[in-house]
Write a protein that binds this DNA or RNA. Structure first.
Lengths: 219, 219
DNA sequence: CGGGCCGTTGACTCTTGTCAATCGCGGTGG
DNA sequence: CCACCGCGATTGACAAGAGTCAACGGCCCG
């Protein structure tokens, strides 16, 4: 599904930093072009990652090809931390992207290493869990329109702007929300007709016009 | 929604244990009758918990009452660990149950405390995340029949027996799988007609007869 | 023995999925 | 610079899976 990871020897720009911290905080940067795979479900988890640029999608697929995108990771987000030595989902670039790869630590050593970075890794796990719980509510109990409204609000919040550049395709959005591309498209059209959003001609960005109405839909 | 937590002074049976470990490992036991609440979404997270007996459901509700049960916790499981000082979901006893309550530690102190118990808490978070990711695939991409089959297989695996005593109602199952009670019931009937399961007269237990057929459905 | 609650079943509705056609942006090559 | 082309997105018509509403069944408990 993707080329084997060829990690070049890490540069060590801070030789004075204590070893434990250095091992954690220094990683190698890797550029990814759109749709390029980073790792697959079942791969040995030799590294975990932080997004530097672009968007990463993490997902699982059923034997017949149905796909569920767990999350989109954006600059600053940490992902790919595993308890076992195998990745439990696949990760690909949803757009041109760049990540920093950190050598995997055992949970044991992560817990023992103090320092800001270890804290950050733990926090990122808690954040992933919190988002997963919110997303289960969305997947299990919200209508198509509510799902799309919630997705747009979430993206706007993460980007910090009412004008959202969507870094992923309709197919990605559909597989994240548990819908089909047709239903995503129809829901967007419906929101636009109601005046809650505006979609420019290129169809790649969305401007949120009426936050309170969207929030009301988000239930 | 539930009475305030009245935690009695903890018994200290191991006065020789170092303080850091003792603080983590000693808790107070609390009995819960069926449907009794333990904490609500938004409550201050003063404690986290380990199930001793019975089953706990953790869930979120939308403003109009739609409910999504994230997970069922069973004996040995740890739940209610939060990054912030607020619980992000509610927890109630799905059956008569008992839990041990541990005083909340900050992520910081959890990371710094070494020892088996801190490891266990971290592992439980990773397990919750892994289960949440699997469950998102189920909620987003599986049919009703596949959902019920997966649920039964999961319960059988956790219990370690093909004869599963279901500690929760059809309503709980429905709210866990993103279905209605009617659809859960119809799916169970369908599985029974196909000879994959047997349901005794009391309707509270399920015997799995054909694991490979159920696994095939699980996709 | 009676009643309530949980679960099951049936008839019908409706949201969402499926299949198919068309649109139109954006890149390519003349 | 302009025409062509490919792919992602949109739209429409129809099908199907799951939800809704309602009635009934049968444990279980008083």
């Amino acid at each position: 599904m993707h080329a084997a990871l060829a990690v070049s020897p890490a540069l060590r720009p801070f030789p004075a930093v204590p070893v434990a911290l250095e091992m954690l905080a220094v990683g190698t940067t890797r550029a990814l072009s759109k749709d390029q795979g980073l790792f697959c479900e079942g791969d040995r988890a030799t590294h975990f990652y932080r997004v530097v640029k672009g968007t990463i999608r993490s997902f699982k697929v059923l034997s017949d090809g149905r796909r569920q995108i767990d999350a989109f990771y954006m600059p600053g987000d940490i992902f790919g931390v595993e308890a076992s030595d195998e990745h439990r989902f696949s990760a690909e670039a949803a757009s041109d992207a760049a990540v920093v790869a950190y050598r995997r630590r055992s949970l044991q050593s992560l817990a023992e290493a103090d320092g800001k970075f270890a804290q950050e890794v733990l926090s990122s796990m808690m954040l992933a869990l919190a988002r997963a719980q919110d997303h289960m509510l969305l997947l299990g109990r919200k209508s198509a329109l509510e799902k799309v409204a919630a997705f747009l609000l979430g993206m706007a919040e993460r980007i910090g702007d009412a004008a959202v550049e969507l870094p992923m395709t309709r197919m990605d959005i559909a597989d994240h929300l548990g819908l089909t591309i047709e239903t995503v498209s129809r829901s967007l059209t419906q929101l636009e007709r109601k005046g809650m959003i505006e979609i420019p001609a290129n169809r790649r960005s969305v401007a949120l016009c009426n936050f309170s109405a969207l929030r009301r839909l988000d239930a």
